[in-house]
Amino acid sequence: MDEAGAEVQKRHLSTDLEAKMQMLMPEPQIFVERTLALIKPDVVDKEEEIEDIILRSGFLIVQKRKLQFSPEQCSNFYAEQYGKMFFPNLTAYMSSGPLVAMVLARRNAVSYWKELLGPSNSIKARRTHPHSLRAIYGTDELRNALHGSLNIFSAEREIRFMFPEVILEPIPAGQRARDYLNLYVNPTLLAGLTALCKEKPADPMVRTVYQHRVVGFVIRFLCVRIRGLCRKTPPLLQSCAPLATC
């Protein structure tokens, strides 16, 4: 085959690879919902354990800080509870030691975090939702281990309270988000995987293992970069076997 024919064949191969990748890559899905989580003073020593559960439940920890409330700050944060009988005990409890504040993000973040928490009364939670976080880590109705925003409006207010330096700009959605992914993300992933398919170590077994591992690395890297935009990881790890032999 002459040089011109080889070049034509190479272009056809590249076009075929692009077509395969377009079929494998799902339509980008966007999520924008965030909620506030607090690890309360009496369970701060369980911080790493609780964070591990949060991450394994599909949340991204967008912001995190450890702080200690003054009674006045507690009163401002729980202003909606002002006047209730338990309010003095609540402010005393929440200002009794350091706590951890986190902004959590995922699809339906508010409702899913509330579901993980379980009932606000830890005694009741142990009866009705024994696997919930408050059942596991909480003590009673007051010392219930963790806080979650009631709704998206409360979440926005509470996030601004805990992280005043954070600008809650709207994340691109709809066509703007699709344009962003198509312009910056998909071409990078496509170019990387196409380049991988052109690498051909002499040993077929080495080639297959090498390409699968590097494909996984590329996907994980991109997912970390775009996790704030993508609802779920593109399922390319399950679909890239045909590409490994190209």
Rank of each mutant, 00 (worst) to 15 (best):
A155W: 02
A155T: 05
E156R: 04
R157D: 06
R157A: 12
I159M: 05
M162T: 10
F163P: 09
F163M: 05
P164S: 05
P164F: 04
E165V: 02
E165P: 11
E165A: 15
V166D: 13
V166G: 07
I167V: 14
L168T: 09
E169T: 08
P170S: 05
I171K: 14
I171H: 06
I171W: 04
A173Y: 02
A173C: 07
G174W: 00
Q175Y: 02
R176F: 00
R176H: 15
R176K: 15
R178K: 14
D179L: 08
Y180A: 14
L181N: 07
L181D: 11
L183R: 13
L183F: 08
L183P: 01
Y184N: 12
V185C: 12
N186P: 02
P187V: 12
P187K: 14
P187D: 08
T188C: 07
L189S: 05
L190I: 13
A191Q: 15
A191T: 05
G192K: 04
G192D: 12
L193S: 00
L193C: 00
T194L: 00
T194N: 09
A195R: 03
A195P: 02
A195N: 15
L196T: 09
K198Q: 09
K198F: 15
E199C: 14
E199N: 11
E199Y: 01
E199V: 15
K200T: 10
A202P: 00
D203M: 03
D203P: 06
M205A: 01
V206Y: 08
V206M: 11
V206L: 08
R207K: 04
R207N: 07
R207L: 12
T208W: 07
T208H: 11
V209E: 13
V209A: 15
Y210R: 06
Y210I: 03
Y210C: 13
